[in-house]
Amino acid sequence: MKLIFFTCQNSPFRGLGGRDTINNMEKVIVAESLTKRFGHFTAVDHISFEVEKGEIFGFLGANGAGKTTAMRMLCGLSKQTSGKGVVAGFDIASQPELVKRNIGYMSQKFSLYGDLKVWENIELFGGIYGMTDEQIKLKTDELMIKLNFEEERNKLVSSLPLGFKQKLAFSVAIFHNPRVVFLDEPTGGVDPITRRKFWELIYDATAHGITVFVTTHYMDEAEYCDRVSIMVDGRIEALDSPANLKKQYQAKNMDEVFQQLARKAKRVDS
């Protein structure tokens, strides 16, 4: 049961097109004209998309494009103004409790408890998701080995470097084996090597059947996704695999694609 994780996937960069072979088409996230208004301001404007089981779905957009707002609606944190959303088979408006039980969430702000130790954070969230003590203990041991965290186990989370914290937050978000995990800029503020390590964890999670919905500002990360959507001013302007997008926009890389689309943005956000 140990350490098969790193070997079970051919490489962390398997994402480029490898997903096309899966055809069971189980929809884990469905958004239909999902809209959120704050007063007269439309933060998310009729977005529609579907995400399949095991997919890594990248959700790109400039600052203020509405990524976090869209994600919050899908997680049941915020109620949509109109439109429909189904996550893990449950309606986000009418069955938020069932949605919550089947998802994991890593927010844009780092959000574990800094004054709790590493294992205490894990135990807490395991407990919140109704796992038994044995399950928690077993999985914690496994996780500590996998993350090479045995020495940090007893340290306060606030004392860890940012890269460690992010890995831990992700591991906690998927600790209860959710069907889908929502990651809001999970790797903000760390260097490319640390980001790559983080993405190894993401691939590992998809290998275990967890669907990943991730927002990012880093275009290198966009390349790792199976499909990406690019949001401009609350609307989805493009949605396809990175390879197809590059072809369509005749771009060398995702950064060029993004620049072409983002130029259209009218919204100015700090």
């Binding site: 409790e97 969430y105 927010s107 702000k109 959000s111 574990l112 919140i128």
Partner: peptide
């Protein structure tokens, strides 16, 4: 303020 409330609210707690 810390953002942990968000995590609690998305949990089944």
């Amino acid at each position: 303020e810390m953002g942990t409330m968000e995590i609690l609210l998305v949990s089944p707690m």
